[in-house]
């Protein structure tokens, strides 16, 4: 089980309604149902993942989050989760607004392009970074809009999106990120998790 999923599960209260956008094979939904008695639904673009969810008895809709979030009514979920996918959309701003229309709150995680290993790769080796969280080459990456925790922080402030909490994950450690420690956490977190409303 991914550390990130455990952190997301801890962020969520019990017995709420959650939409997992880009739910993959349903591991997070499974966890939320079992540990938090959450009513979980998924949206997933890949047919093979959709089927895996169906075999597990999870509720999943095959579809593209970029164009098909409109099918969910306003505020029909307590939380909408988007795990490490925001950077892959053509229009992340539009998607983010849709997440906050469908959900009362949104949990958005991003692979942090400000992580020190990513920075050194470009600085020292002069090459586009390839890490465990960013395993792609420059020419085949689905990540069109890479950003850092700091970028995301500034973006939310600019767009008047309320940040309720930011968590940074580095290996096994999770820490809370605030304006005061933003610079350092932006350097040492692999993944940033934003709780937005």
């Amino acid at each position: 089980m991914k550390k990130e999923f455990k952190v997301i599960a801890e962020l969520l209260p019990k017995n709420v309604r959650v939409l997992d956008v880009g739910c993959g094979d349903g591991s997070l939904m499974d966890l939320l149902i079992k540990e938090k008695n959450i009513e979980a639904r998924g949206l997933e673009i890949k047919e093979e993942y959709v089927k895996k969810c169906i075999y597990k008895g999870l509720s999943v809709i095959e579809g593209n989050a970029e164009t098909e979030l409109h099918q969910f009514p306003d505020q029909s979920f307590d939380y909408v989760v988007l795990s490490q996918t925001l950077q892959a959309f053509y229009n992340p701003e539009k998607v983010l607004k849709e997440l906050l229309r469908v959900g009362k709150s949104a949990i958005v995680s991003i692979p942090n392009f400000g992580y020190w290993k990513v920075r050194t790769s470009l600085l020292i080796f002069g090459k586009m970074p390839m890490t465990k969280t960013l395993p792609y080459n420059w020419h085949n990456t689905p990540n069109l809009h890479m950003c850092t925790i700091k970028d995301m922080f500034n973006f939310c402030n600019e767009k008047n999106i309320k940040i309720d909490k930011i968590l940074g994950i580095n290996e096994d450690k999770t820490s809370q990120i605030k304006r005061s420690n933003l610079e350092i956490k932006n350097l040492f977190s692999k993944i940033g998790i934003f709780l937005l409303s």
């Binding site: 089927k51 509720s59 009514p73």
Partner: peptide, 21 residues
């Protein structure tokens, strides 16, 4: 078929959808 899914979603029903290629 997706319109059926949208209607079920709008009603808050528990719905899954798969398109077979």
């Amino acid at each position: 078929n997706k319109e059926t899914v949208i209607a079920l979603n709008a009603a808050g029903a528990d719905v899954s959808f798969a398109e077979i290629k």
